[in-house]
């Protein structure tokens, strides 16, 4: 860590302190996460290795998607300290959460001079740090992602889910949004040719790929994985109890998850409670969108959630892609599950 970056970080701290003091409000309380951006190679189920960029908690592995971040109930402030181990500048934005931006523009002499590179302040490449804060966070499900060269960095994997509940096991202020189990389902895509070009330095003005206009994904992921037959289902609580499915799309295309054999209640969009809930078996999950769907399984057993856009392939192989199984436990076998948090497939609450 070099001195300049330390100074950057201190500036932010001082700015926050100053802001707090001058506005006369109590000292900002809130949860803090230390995130690291880095790269790794992942093996797709069809045997292809793809370079990914991801986020990880400090001291843990970098993953795609990044860790699910939770702003605890009663807390309305979030601080993320980002350490950037990638060779390019990276930043963090959370669409849907109002915040001031400090955009960074390409400088004179750059082929894109005058155009915005980052929608907000960057963490410098090679270990640079930057602190981001959000206040007055409202309840909801949000995507956090890089705000730098988004057309590349998001498809490279720099995204994750953020959730904040109104009350314990209640998503929004409306009591009808109470649930027993919540499951994060984050959709994204991979165009391996872009990843390969980025890895080899061939993406850019003088490279083999100069823009994202020919984006053509061939891997379709939920929580970073393309479905493989026999994949372990995600525990979805107990029959008759409410499951909150938090759908997020960090991909560049629309997907339409369908809940096989079930009807849910669509309760939110982009972390905003809908004025009226809608009974739907599908969620029109546009690029960048989040939607929460409440489901009350009437029977124990598996529930299949599949993309009706039919991106159900892994490379050229069928029976893959954006399909996931949930598993609803029968009532008698798990009597103690009431209000007990259940871990999803990624092992996070």
């Amino acid at each position: 860590m070099n001195k300049i970056i330390k100074r950057d970080r201190m500036t932010v701290v001082w700015a926050v302190l100053l802001l707090t003091l001058t506005s006369g409000t109590p000292v900002v309380r809130g949860v803090t996460y230390d995130l690291v951006a880095g790269e790794f190679d992942t093996l797709m189920p069809d045997g292809v290795t793809v370079r990914m960029w991801g986020f990880g908690l400090s001291g843990q592995a970098v993953t795609v998607p990044g860790p699910v971040l939770t702003v605890p109930v009663g807390d309305h402030n979030l601080t993320i300290n980002l350490t950037n181990n990638l060779p390019v500048p990276v930043s963090l934005v959370i669409p849907g959460l109002p915040s001031a931006l400090t955009p960074v523009y390409h400088q004179a002499g750059d082929p894109y001079a005058g155009r915005v590179r980052s929608l907000t302040a960057e963490a410098a490449p090679g270990g640079g740090q930057r602190t981001y804060t959000w206040t007055d966070i409202r309840p909801g499900t949000f995507v956090y992602h890089s705000g730098t060269q988004m057309q590349i960095q998001i498809q490279m994997g720099l995204y994750g889910a953020l959730k904040h509940d109104f009350a314990a096991s209640q998503a929004y202020a409306d009591p009808a949004t109470a649930y027993q189990t919540d499951i994060v389902l984050l959709y994204s895509e991979v165009d391996p040719s872009v990843h390969a070009a980025v890895q080899s330095g061939e993406y850019g003005p003088s490279g083999t790929i100069t823009s994202t206009v020919s984006y053509w994904p061939s891997y379709f992921l939920i929580n970073g994985e393309s479905y493989t037959p026999g994949q372990a289902p995600i525990p979805a609580g107990v029959v008759g109890q409410k499951v909150l499915l938090r759908f997020l799309n960090a991909g560049l295309r629309t997907h339409v998850p369908i809940i096989h054999n079930h009807i849910g209640k669509l309760i939110s969009e982009d972390g905003n409670l809908l004025p009226f809930f809608r009974d739907q078996y599908e969620v029109m999950l546009a690029a960048g969108k989040t939607s929460d769907l409440l489901l009350t399984p009437a029977a124990a057993g598996p529930i299949t959630v599949y993309d009706r856009k039919l991106d159900l392939t892994t490379g050229m192989e069928s029976s893959g892609g954006m399909l996931v199984k949930l598993d609803v436990a029968p009532l008698q076998t798990q009597p103690g599950l009431w209000k007990k948090p259940i871990r999803n497939r990624l092992g996070r609450v």
């Binding site: 931006l101 057309q151 100069t210 823009s211 994202t212 206009v213």
Partner: peptide
């Protein structure tokens, strides 16, 4: 300050073969 309006179909942040558009 400055805020942004853009498409989340991020591949369309391009002017044909030119990036950042």
């Amino acid at each position: 300050g400055t805020y942004f309006l853009y498409t989340t179909n991020l591949n369309f942040l391009s002017n044909d073969a030119e990036d950042y558009g």
